[in-house]
Design a protein around this nucleic acid. Sequence first.
DNA 1: TTAAGTGTTGCTCT
DNA 2: AAGAGCAACACTTA
Length: 268
Amino acid sequence: MPELPDVEAFRATVQRHFIDRPVSRVVVSDPKCLEGVTALTAQRRLKGRGIQSTGRHGKYLFLDFGDNIVLVMHFGPAGSLHRVADAQEQPDYVRFQLDFSNGESLAYVNRRRIGHIRLVAGAAAFIEKARLGPDAMNPDFKFPGFAHRVSDRGQPIKVFLTDQSNLAGIGNTWSDEILFQALIHPAVRASSLGAARARQLFDEMRRVLKIAIDLDPSTADFEARLPSDFLLPHRHPGGHCPGCGTALDRVVLSGHSSTYCPNRQKPT
DNA sequence: TTAAGTGTTGCTCT
DNA sequence: AAGAGCAACACTTA
């Protein structure tokens, strides 16, 4: 379930292995994964070009081919991006693939058909059109801006964190972890948090996401390498709080289920 | 066997 | 207009 840390890992892979290499072939194995562009157009515009730079905003990945050609990828709940060095080891559910002249490929995998690929002229215009808030890890997005948005919203704080128009990059999984670390109940109204708890939430958001990025969610045993006080490995039916052992509870807010510790995260 | 759960975006409804 | 709820998707678990 790719959220900010996962997409950041995809971006790093592209940055490390695929910069400035000509695309030798564009394979659209599922045309439905393309939005607003036909397979033929995508092939014509990308073939022979190389990725000049990579970018990410929230859960969106941008591959900039220069000349106002930017490939935008979104992964939905079940998508991923893989470097395929050996054609024999093709993953399942590849819906779009870029083959490069050195024999390697970049495979866009999506088990379900939620999430898609677009071609746009520029990342900034796309971000504005999609009404995305600031990226949760953008260094220019500081506490005052966060606090202002929090005080402005009557949504439950859980819904606030996952609403991409407030801030971009956090989904159901990491919002649960962030609220758990900040000791805040998911149903608390954003506007009723107060400055001190908003500060706590902001700091934990940054700390948790940084840990996730540094541990690299695309590598093996990611969950097992998380700090021992993290909620994530226990976020399943029958799970218990890693801090106090209390049976975890869940609440559904705006159709999204949240897992939390009823002992440490009080609704106040 | 059927039904519910999973998570994201974007639409409709109030 | 803000917030809630559902559809789309495909696969897993009860």
